[in-house]
Simulated scan of single mutants.
Amino acid sequence: MTGRAANPGSPGAVEGLTGTTALVTGASRGFGRAIATALSGVGAHVVGVARDQARLDDLRDELGDTFTPVVAEATDPDTAARLIGEHRPHTLVLNAGAAPLLRPLHHQTWETFSRNWEVDVQQVFHWVREALLRPLLPGSTVITMSSGAAINGSPLSGGYAGAKATIGFMTSYAAAESKREGLGITFASVLPKLTPATELGASGVAAYAERQGVDLGSFLEALGSTLTREQVGTSVVDLAAGHHLHQDTYLLTPTGLAPLG
């Protein structure tokens, strides 16, 4: 079963995406909401997965029939198996994740330190595994949302940076398996730069400004131009349409996507 196709005559239609089904986890807020909106805007029918019914309903009101809300736990392997089986998405964006506890290492517990491994990493593992086992149809694209913290670390967020780095590794492993088995599924990981454009990013920016002993305005000025949610949505659409897919991993900054060797 697939979602209802969007109007192929949509002014934002993108060849290869119009009329296809996209599935986005963590679609109710932040980057996930922006990605769902961008994919809908280019003619894809979007299945949005999240736990927050009210936020999903709000997005459904905004996007109309091009959006199907699904209230579910993205870390549940049965959810991954069921929804991939029902919708057979052409584009799968794995964006769901937990907000880390913003404290130095010695003020973490193992439970708070490992939170992003239990949520972010586990989610990607189950959905990527199901995409390979099902498998998704040839020509499908799986995009995992990592973080720039995977490169530089994040001393105030426990295991967050390591979890995001592992997501990148898993994505590369999956890409290699797809190639080895001739599945024709593309896998790519996106590492957005720190930005105050989301609730998580805004909390991180505030915490690091305080750690450095500077006011928020000074910290943001030093950070330079910041990534917007709309830029993230547009960049994911570009990857899904195959405009940049030459590598498995991409850093995303306000200037655009940059492949990482």
Score class of each variant (00 low, 15 high):
Ser218Trp: 05
Val47Lys: 09
Asp120Thr: 14
Thr234Phe: 00
Glu130Met: 08
Arg55Gly: 04
His107Val: 03
Thr195Asn: 09
Ile185Pro: 01
Ser172Asp: 14
Ala36Leu: 10
Ala98Ser: 13
Ala197Met: 05
Phe125Ile: 13
Pro77Gly: 10
Ala96Ser: 15
Gly213Gln: 07
Tyr250Arg: 05
Asp78Leu: 13
Phe219Ser: 06
Val214Trp: 02
Ala6Phe: 05
Asn116Pro: 00
Gln122Tyr: 10
Pro104Asp: 08
Phe31Arg: 03
Phe169Cys: 05
Gly16Val: 03
Ser235Thr: 00
Gln123Cys: 12
Ala6Glu: 08
Asp76Arg: 13
Gly9Gln: 11
Val49Leu: 15
His243Thr: 13
His126Trp: 09
Leu101Ser: 11
Pro11Met: 07
Phe169Met: 15
His126Tyr: 10
Thr109Ala: 05
Ser225Met: 01
Gly158Phe: 10
Gly217Thr: 15
Gly48Thr: 02
Val70Asn: 01
Lys193Leu: 12
Ile35His: 04
Arg211Ile: 01
Ala50Gln: 04
Gly182Asn: 11
Ala27Met: 01
Thr255Pro: 04
Glu130Tyr: 04
His126Gly: 00
Arg82His: 11
Arg115Glu: 02
Phe113Met: 08
Trp117Gly: 07
Leu245Ala: 06
Asp76Ile: 12
Val142His: 08
Ser189His: 12
Thr66Met: 06
Ala36Val: 07
Met1Trp: 11
Ala149His: 01
Ser218Ala: 15
His87Gln: 14
His107Tyr: 12
Ala131Lys: 06
Thr171Leu: 03
Phe67Trp: 14
Thr68Val: 15
Gln212Tyr: 07
Val142Ser: 03
Thr91Ala: 15
Ala6Lys: 05
Leu227Arg: 04
Ser114Tyr: 06
Ala99Gly: 07
Asp76Glu: 10
Ala165Ser: 13
Arg129Gly: 03
Gly30Pro: 05
Pro8Ser: 08
Ala207Arg: 07
Pro155Trp: 07
Arg60Phe: 03
Thr166Ile: 04
Ala22Asp: 06
Ile84Phe: 04
Phe31Gly: 00
Gly242Tyr: 03
Val24Phe: 09
Leu56Arg: 10
Glu230Leu: 09
Ile185Val: 13
Asp78Lys: 12
Arg88Thr: 13
His107Leu: 14
Asp65Leu: 14
Asp120His: 12
Glu130Ala: 15
Gly12Leu: 10
Asp57Cys: 13
Ser157Pro: 00
His126Ser: 08
Pro155Leu: 00
Ser40His: 14
Asp76Asn: 15
Leu216Thr: 03
Trp117Ala: 06
Gly12Asp: 05
Thr195Lys: 10
Ala161Asp: 00
Thr68Arg: 15
Leu133Met: 11
Glu86His: 13
Thr198Cys: 06
